[in-house]
Design a protein around this nucleic acid. Sequence first.
DNA 1: GGTAATGTTAGACT
DNA 2: TAGTCTAACATTAC
Length: 260
Amino acid sequence: MPELPDVEHFKEYLESTSLHQTVSRIEIKTRNLARGNISTSELKSLEGDRFQSAERRGKFLITNLKKNQKKLVLHFGMTGDLKYTKENEKDHKHSRITFHFSSGYKLQWLNQRKLGGVYLVSRPEDIKTIRKMGPEPFQLSEKDFLSLLEEHSRKNIKRFLMDQEIIAGIGNVYSDEILFQSGIDPRRKAKSLSEKERKNIYRKTKEVLREAVEVKIQPEKLPHFITPHRKDRECPNCGGKIKRKKIGGRSAYFCPRCQK
DNA sequence: GGTAATGTTAGACT
DNA sequence: TAGTCTAACATTAC
């Protein structure tokens, strides 16, 4: 699930469920913690601490702890999620780390494919991906967006949107959605875009992400969206067939009739 | 059994 | 140098 709107949702979810409670026990249910710099013993050392607050940077969820000066940072990979339940409920099948609280509840970090990661760092910038990360889309002015496009004008527009070093937080699903809402064929080069098209993509980038955050990732509330991906899905605009094509190593879904 | 999957990164190629 | 492509990571769901 996890692109910017999803991680924003995880942040709000963690804030509304797990802050200020004592972590009585941390259960590590996987042999290796996949990516990240934290070791099993380092993670265990957080027992007795509390989550104080949470932030999001790109697709990363950053949590501040009460005792430990360092921040526990979660990345979700392609298949990550958070699940807060009562202690007596069975852990989810893909639960990799469980934070048990003394309140009788627990927070599970799910990661089906182990492509996510867990970090413990003094500053978020200690993580290379974050250090090199481009600006947050919501804080990006039209002027800056246009100059980024100019700077990377030889790039394919879908790759441009997905490149974390250019703009943070957009992945395969939302780049498709932005281009669908903009009526732009994902195979286009940035260079080929007119001034009008560039400004439109800028507007739609913010609009799509904002809408997705607002409805908390419930696709049924966004009937005009092309996502989530589904085979044989019809275009919500013209009813035509959605096409799939590999672009930038990923499957791009788009409507050839509506996206020029 | 085959295929694809919302992310990141290293290495090879153009 | 910049951009693109492929493979790898690990695991499942359809």
